[in-house]
Design a protein around this nucleic acid. Structure first.
Lengths: 337, 337
DNA sequence: CTGAAAGCGCTAACAC
DNA sequence: GTGTTAGCGCTTTCAG
């Protein structure tokens, strides 16, 4: 039904080869023919078929994006950063949510392969490289984001979670807090583990033994944050809470609210990530901010460099983004207990 | 490099026809051959090429999604509802952000057409049908969401924005507020216009003349909401603010915070949409909640019905979703002035 | 019950 | 400077 290259060729009175070359600027064509072709294209409203081209070239002009949690505004912003590049290159994006499920991850990777994506950006669900190494082996351009995987010869972009976490803990210690509860995100992904490590390192370097009972495992839903906070509050001596991701932070706040706990007077709170509302909240939230847009942007840059072959083989890059501690109202000097 | 149907056929000692039929279950194949084929497929890790199939069938097993604002969690949830269906049908989703820009919208529609998407779900940037009617004419399955377009013979799913807004205004009137400021979203899209209309209708039916100076135009960024609220506050007699979208609401809250205005004691606030944090905020926010997941889900259902041809021609549906006024702490009885 | 072969729209090697 | 043509991987008619 839609016009094909053949229709254009006939209308312009040239061969389809010439049409192809005009479209792709892939060899010289005389002014005159170029014009005839362009006119024909315009009149027919011709657009090259994605399939014809793809079948021939084995390229899809599409990149795949595998993200764990669509509810998290963080990844939304990451996606924007990536989009910046894909638009410039005329590429499409196919995005799938893994929901932190390795099975889904595997499925979608295979899905993407079937569709011959030209590159893939993944925030992996696990620290293991099983599902990823085949990709690398097959030479599909790949960039890992958000979660660092050790010893994997592949481009990676992630935040310096350990330092971010360290600084948050140090900030709380500096305010006189000795017993700092930690709400973790889902275990087994590096973001969580590194943030946990930063907390541990900081306490230890300040001569404080880490009380494991102050570390409560959550995942990434408000209710889980709520429950984890309640559990934490059973220990009456907690004067500060450090929450490792946005949803857990909201859960903590909800719990505070339900129990009539005054933050920061009764308990200080520090979160990770800086969503729009964090600064508007009452109290405004002290947080460790990441650079989600930049994460996406850098990842996109690495990916397209690989796609366009402007990269030496085996020369992979690892980009660690700085975090920033933003001190607001939700943390205050410990009133002791 | 990856295995083709031909490789499978050779390995299984059958014709490619048979392989195709086994894969697609499109005609009877003896148990024996089926097994041989399936084994060969497994051993080769064969996946049918998306391009080969697409070129032949003119289908992409992909739907397109055009959304205006990726920062808005609302659309994120809508997308989840759609995804539910696309997963079940083994379809992919290609999503693009129009950023409320009709030019981008047009571009992406054309982009989607080139890629032969099997259907399109769009939250249009304007009330005009120009970019959309060609699609309808070409018979590409299409569902409009969020924003109603009159007299367009196409499936549509949207919220009853007028009633939602009406109820919010009525709630504020019931609390004794007489001078209710209105922060609008971007003008010219039906969501904004209908919400505006609901506000107007409510005041009028309660015998109150609408003071146009209480209606301040914003768009969809925090800073715009902030500025609009400041403008509103120049009128000292405003005792309540009704904000028409999430970002404007955040802007209003930010302004309140900056000026030391106590909500709801000094001024009541009602928002539209119910993001995660609205209930956790201090004060928790009275809002008109929509049903974003349902919006996506219904849209997906309509779209796939059309894609699979289970719909009479010219038999379009229009689904209006109820909104719900959720009364929380941010609205209180007017203390008068 | 199975296979041979045409052809979807395009690009690029090969002619001229 | 331009055209002819093979063939990418698949589905589907047609033949048997």
């Amino acid at each position: 039904m839609p016009a094909t290259i053949k229709d254009v060729a006939e209308k312009a009175g040239v061969s389809i080869t010439t049409v192809s070359h005009v479209i792709n600027k892939t060899r010289f064509v005389s002014e005159q023919l170029q014009q005839r072709v362009n006119i024909a294209i315009a009149e027919l409203g011709y657009q090259p078929s994605h399939f014809g081209r793809g079948l021939r070239q084995g390229r899809s002009y599409t990149i795949g994006l595998l993200l764990p949690d669509p509810n998290d505004g963080f990844f939304q912003t990451v996606a924007r950063g990536i989009e910046e590049h894909s638009q410039n290159h005329g590429f499409g994006i196919t995005c799938c949510n893994t929901d932190e499920d390795p099975i889904k991850e595997r499925f979608f990777i295979s899905f993407m392969k079937q569709r011959s994506v030209d590159g893939l950006i993944i925030a992996p669900t696990t620290m293991a490289a099983e599902s990823l190494s085949p990709l690398i082996h097959e030479g599909i351009p790949l960039v890992i984001i958000d979660r660092y995987i050790e010893d994997l010869p592949v481009d990676q972009v992630f935040s310096d979670n350990r330092t971010g976490s360290y600084q948050a803990a140090e900030h709380l210690l500096g305010l006189g807090h000795k017993r700092i509860g930690l709400l973790t995100g889902i275990r087994g992904i590096t973001t969580t583990e590194h943030r946990l490590q930063g907390y541990r390192d900081c306490l230890q370097e300040h001569g404080i033994d880490v009380d494991e009972s102050l570390i409560v495992e959550g995942r990434s839903k408000i209710e889980e944050g709520y429950a984890a906070t309640e559990q934490l509050l059973l220990r009456a001596d907690v004067t500060a809470v450090f929450s490792i991701n946005t949803m857990m932070t909201l859960g903590a706040l909800k719990c505070f609210k339900a129990r009539g706990i005054d933050c920061p007077h009764d308990i200080s709170l520090t979160g990770f990530d800086d969503p729009d509302w964090a600064a508007v909240f009452t109290p405004s939230l002290t947080v460790v901010a990441q650079q989600p847009y930049k994460m996406g942007y850098e990842a996109g840059e690495l990916l397209f460099r690989a796609i366009e072959g402007q990269r030496e083989e085996e020369q992979v890059q690892t980009i660690e983004l700085k975090t920033q501690l933003i001190i607001r109202e939700s943390t205050a000097r410990s009133t002791g207990h």
